[in-house]
Amino acid sequence: MNVVINGDAMVLPETVNSVSRLLEHFNLEQKVVIVELNQHILDKSMHAETILTDGDRIEIVHFVGGG
């Protein structure tokens, strides 16, 4: 599947078909993240059931503590 993540065009493996799987794919499942899908912020409870489709534009922001 072809998607754009944080501005970069990427090809995702077929198994990565939901937002939850995508976060696991990038080892972000334990992080506190905000996901925007096609300019729409997803509620965290929707990550598992939100299915990705070809051409999706995704922004992933994760919080870090350093400073």
Partner: peptide, 26 residues
């Protein structure tokens, strides 16, 4: 509202380091 939980462990300056340009940008 933005963070429903505290990040546990994860990367810190300890494990990942940090560079000055990133600091300056923030």
């Amino acid at each position: 509202c933005l963070m429903d939980k505290l990040p546990l462990g994860g990367t810190t300056c300890d494990t990942a380091g940090v560079i000055q340009p990133a600091i300056q940008m923030v």
